[in-house]
Nucleic acid binder design. Structure first.
Length: 549
RNA sequence: GGCCCUAUGGUCAAGCGGUCAAGACACCGCCCUUUCACGGCGGUAACCCGGGUUCGAUUCCCGGUAGGGUCACCA
């Protein structure tokens, strides 16, 4: 068999040789130790938390080493293509602070290692396929779907592994003439790898691959004659991955653990092509607890998997980032405690510190992290964020914020100063619920007066209103409440009440709860005096009067 | 079914042959306090099972079990 002739027969249009591409895409000149990573989404338009998780790893690896992080669109399957998906991906990632140094972007592509859309790299792949064919390492296969199905059936009956390999690889040794005849007959064909692996597990070589996260992975070598070029002339993922990551000079391939099982294929491809392998980092799947069982997060059932969910709820990107970092590296929280004010970028991220078991997504934890993050963000930025969020997801309330920035900022800053700032802001939705009573249209009485004091409510509020002086400082103000409490036989200090509960109707806390409900509509809130200062005298008096009736 | 990955409290997760088995979230209690939150203190709660190796295994090996992944001209 003359493989050169076969290659020429199959790919007459390919005139370039691998060497040409080697010089078009030379090794990158980057500082020692710089890492080149990539994100390779297929343009389905759906980007989820898992993608973001992986993207962070890529981004950290590259940026921390002074390397390159690029975006490559893996659109080798036109059936999956969704209009506008690339924009969606870039925008969603950008919202969470992920951007690229190179590759596909909103306005075309940038970088010297393109094209960055696999669909535009046909010639490149075919060149390497041709190379493989000419070396007898790949061959055209004319098996039809039906024939393959039959083979599979027979294999199942014989309890053999399914697939095209060994004696099942019917087209492995077709002569040049047979190939020619098939082509002339208009038969469609794919190109398969002529695997050198042994299907007998006893005789198979064991391959060991170092993984950036998991140490060493070892498994039997590949023996399947996998498809590398589809009938359309477009490569499969396996082949595109190997060629692209070599030519784009990727040093670290971060991908989900579902790829581990096809690693042997990739290893064989890298070897046959004579490429150096990148370092693989197989990340664990994000899981979720469902009826007591861990399971993979699914886009159908789990809204929190979608990145949109966090935007809709109004989580700030840095909060999500911070949370992701805590599950990304086990020592992150420790580092954060030691460096409370440091930029997250400064954290020395290590793939070795990544968990290799599936982490359960924990909303409670996210909320907690978010509180800690938001407490450090200035009110002006929070206000801006709330406006942006409302504009997109709750346009009805936007007018409450716009043009009232000073008011909003005061509200957001309530109790946030001092040594022990309040941490009650989590996300947009929650924040609005938390501060709703500051807006008359959204103010309503939500809670009931405490039972022991309800009877005195009107009396308390009347006296409160009568003695109210907006200019009182906090202690003057509270002294008046104490006075009211004492007059009405409530203990001025809770401790007195605790000692002699029978002597009083309640304590000053009950009195202020009445006031709190009248002014805020709820029994729980930050400091009443501060709120009244923000609300203003008129509005405060109005609300109290309204409850006196 | 074959191959592979994983296995410490409810969750995340330190540990890497000898520890009273860290820490965080959640939960509970107490303190602080005019409510809530914050903060402080304390508490409940864990090494999947069975064999080895070893003076000694959560840690190493083997075998189960459980969960997950993968076996496409999808990525």
């Amino acid at each position: 068999m003359n493989y050169n002739k076969l290659a020429e027969l199959l790919f007459p249009q390919i005139t370039k040789a691998p060497q040409d591409y080697e010089s078009i895409y030379p090794p990158r000149s980057l500082p020692e130790g710089a890492r080149v990573t990539r994100l390779g989404p297929s343009p389905t338009g759906f980007i989820h938390l898992g993608n973001l998780y992986g993207a962070f790893v890529d981004e950290r690896l590259a940026r921390q080493s002074g390397g390159i992080f690029y975006l490559r669109i893996e659109d080798t399957d036109d059936k999956r293509y969704v209009e506008g998906a690339v924009e969606t991906i870039i925008t969603a990632l950008d919202f969470f602070g992920i951007d690229f140094d190179e590759g596909a972007s909103l306005d075309g592509s940038r970088g010297d290692y393109g094209p960055y859309y696999q669909s535009q790299r046909g010639e490149i792949y075919q060149c390497y396929v041709k190379e493989l064919v000419s070396k007898g390492l790949a061959y055209p296969c004319f098996l039809t779907e039906d024939e393959i199905a039959k083979i599979r059936k027979a294999q199942e009956e014989n309890k053999e592994n399914p697939g095209i390999y060994g004696s099942y690889a019917a087209c492995r040794d077709l002569s040049l003439e047979e190939v020619q005849q098939n082509i002339d007959a208009g038969k469609s064909y794919v190109i398969r790898l002529r695997s050198g692996g042994n299907q007998d597990p006893e005789k198979a070589r064991t391959i060991s691959v170092g993984d950036g996260i998991r140490g060493t992975l070892s498994m039997p070598e590949n023996y399947q004659d996998v498809v590398i070029l589809k009938a359309t002339g477009i490569p499969t993922y396996h082949f595109a991955h190997v060629v692209d990551d070599h030519l784009m000079r990727t040093t670290h391939v971060v991908r989900g653990e579902e790829w581990i099982s096809s690693l042997p294929i990739h290893v064989e491809l890298f070897e046959k092509l004579g490429f150096e392998m990148p370092v693989f980092c197989h990340t664990a799947q994000l899981m979720k607890l469902d009826n007591g069982n861990k399971r993979k997060l699914s886009k159908r059932k789990d809204p929190e998997l979608s990145l949109d969910y966090y935007r809709q709820e109004g989580y700030m990107p840095e909060a999500v980032r911070e949370y992701l970092l805590t599950i990304l590296n086990s020592n992150y929280e420790e580092w954060r405690q030691a460096n409370p004010d440091a930029d997250a970028e400064e954290f020395p991220f290590q793939t070795e510190k990544m968990s290799n078991s599936g982490a359960l997504f924990d909303l409670d934890k996210l909320n907690d992290v978010s509180k800690d993050v938001l407490v450090k963000i200035p009110a002006s930025r929070l206000c801006q964020f709330m406006k942006d969020w409302a504009k997109e997801f709750m346009p009805d309330i936007l007018p409450l914020f716009e043009g009232h920035e000073d008011y909003i900022e005061k509200i957001l800053d309530l109790g946030r100063s001092g040594k022990k700032p309040r941490k009650d802001l989590v996300c947009g939705k929650q924040i609005f619920g938390f501060i709703r009573y500051f807006f008359d249209d959204h103010f309503e009485i939500e809670d009931e007066y405490p039972q022991n004091a309800a009877a005195d409510a009107k009396e308390i509020l009347t006296r409160y209103l009568d003695t109210y002086a907006h200019s009182d400082d906090q202690s003057q103000w509270f002294d008046k409440i104490r006075a009211i409490a004492e007059d009405l036989n409530y203990a001025a200090r809770p401790k007195d009440y605790k000692k002699n509960p029978d002597q009083y109707k309640g304590h000053v806390g009950d009195v202020s709860t009445i006031i709190r409900i009248a002014v805020m509509g709820r029994s729980q809130s930050p400091d009443i005096w501060e709120i009244q200062q923000i609300l203003g005298e008129e509005r405060t008096r109005q609300r109290i009067s309204a409850q006196i009736g």
